[in-house]
């Protein structure tokens, strides 16, 4: 039984993905996600009873290093690509004041 994706499902996905689609993108993507899921659901044919999951292929576990202080970005380097900055901070549009006003 295939999964049918609705526009409401897509709106929920936009929320959890923090991605906004245009109406046109939403109309295109809704049937496409249905067909993508239809394709991947063929894995249901494969018997995986008692098969362990593979999450990585190298077999490497617990890669650790000494907790040493090493040179890292200066404040200037860290801010070099910031769209906006002020007094050494990343700057974004204020939002907390609106919440305070609602409270």
């Amino acid at each position: 039984m295939s999964t049918i994706i609705t526009q409401d499902d897509i709106k929920h996905l936009e929320k959890i993905s923090m991605i906004r689609l245009s109406d046109e993108e939403r109309n295109t993507f809704t049937p496409q996600l249905t067909s993508i899921l239809e394709y991947v659901e063929k894995l249901g044919e494969v018997d995986t009873k008692d098969v362990p999951e593979t999450t990585q292929v190298t077999g490497i576990v617990n890669v650790l290093r000494e907790d040493e202080v090493k040179p890292t970005f200066t404040q200037e380097q860290a801010l070099a690509n910031a769209p906006e900055q002020e007094r050494g901070y990343f700057k974004i549009r204020g939002s907390l004041k609106n919440i305070a006003a609602d409270a």
Partner: peptide
């Protein structure tokens, strides 16, 4: 916020950013 292109539209919450 830390790099890349951004939109300077008005926002209600950080989620909107």
């Amino acid at each position: 916020t830390r790099y890349g292109t951004f939109k300077n539209d008005p926002v209600q919450t950080v989620y909107d950013v």
